[in-house]
Amino acid sequence: MYRDRVVSVIEIRVDENACNGCGLCVKDCPMQVYELRDAISVPVRAASCMGCLSCHEICPAQALEHRGVYPSRRHYIDIRVCEMLNRVI
């Protein structure tokens, strides 16, 4: 949808206990949202986040949490595989 960016704010949280300070999110983010401070990633420019979630994919510690991100459609997930996984889990 065409939405006005002014009203949609993304909130980012970093689990400080989980973050290992590898800095991959700092390198990967095109908008320089993160900075490393005392070997912990800090989202210093969360307002510039466009919600691509590359940082989620790249974070080895799964320490990131985004709120207010528009979740894009994912047709590539096979419903039958999901059903099977849900049964197993």
Binding site: P30, M50, C52, L53, Y70, S72
Partner: peptide, 10 residues
């Protein structure tokens, strides 16, 4: 292309 991601691309 500025950036490609799993949820959005810039």
């Amino acid at each position: 292309i500025v950036h490609t991601g799993p949820n959005a691309c810039l």
